Amino acid sequence: MNRPELRQVGIRDVAFGAGVKVVEPCNLYGCTIGDGCFIGPFNEIQKGVVIGARTRVQSHSFICELVTVGEDCFIGHGVMFINDTFASGGPARGRKELWCETRIGNRVSIGSNATIMPVQIVDDVVIGAGAVVTKDITVAGVYAGSPARRLRM
């Protein structure tokens, strides 16, 4: 019987600011977590990700490479960030030049189970639970739906 290659969940090569709280188990590697952040259990935050000061990341979220999150943000349970848009008709299969970045502004709240495609989101935005953000959000307000659209200022 063959044995699988085991890769353990862990926290490695992370630059932590002051006063950060992390609830394990988490898989954090090669990322930067700002001052006063809270990272809940069962999250994966990949290399190169930057999480701004005082941001909360609730449980079961996935923040992939090429994501930057501003300060004073809230990321709900089960939020998924995507960096591969399948631009070539299928998965990039490790071809990072096909990946795209996501930038989240300050004071952005993202509801549980939202999916964030590679986009730019300005400051002071609320994304409703279960929303799918497929396009840049350039005006502050409340957004929901699939695809996400502005409901109100």
Rank of each mutant, 00 (worst) to 15 (best):
M80P: 00
V142K: 02
A144P: 01
G10V: 06
P41L: 01
I110M: 11
R93A: 14
N27P: 00
R93Q: 14
R54V: 02
V119N: 09
M80L: 13
V67L: 12
G76Y: 01
F16E: 11
D13H: 06
I137W: 05
G78H: 06
E71K: 03
P118Y: 06
E65I: 05
N2I: 15
G130L: 06
R103Q: 12
G78F: 08
P41I: 00
G90P: 01
M1Y: 14
V139C: 13
V50S: 11
I11N: 02
V125D: 09
S59G: 12
R56N: 12
P4D: 06
G48N: 07
Q58K: 12
A87C: 06
T55K: 02
V57N: 03
D13L: 00
K21W: 05
N27M: 13
Q46V: 01
K21G: 01
G145A: 12
H60W: 14
C64M: 09
A15E: 13
M117A: 09
I137L: 10
E65G: 08
R103M: 11
N2K: 15
V139S: 12
E97H: 15
V50Y: 03
C64R: 14
G19D: 05
I33V: 15
R150V: 03
F16H: 08
I63Y: 15
A114V: 06
R56M: 13
G130P: 13
G40M: 05
V133H: 10
G78C: 08
G36Y: 02
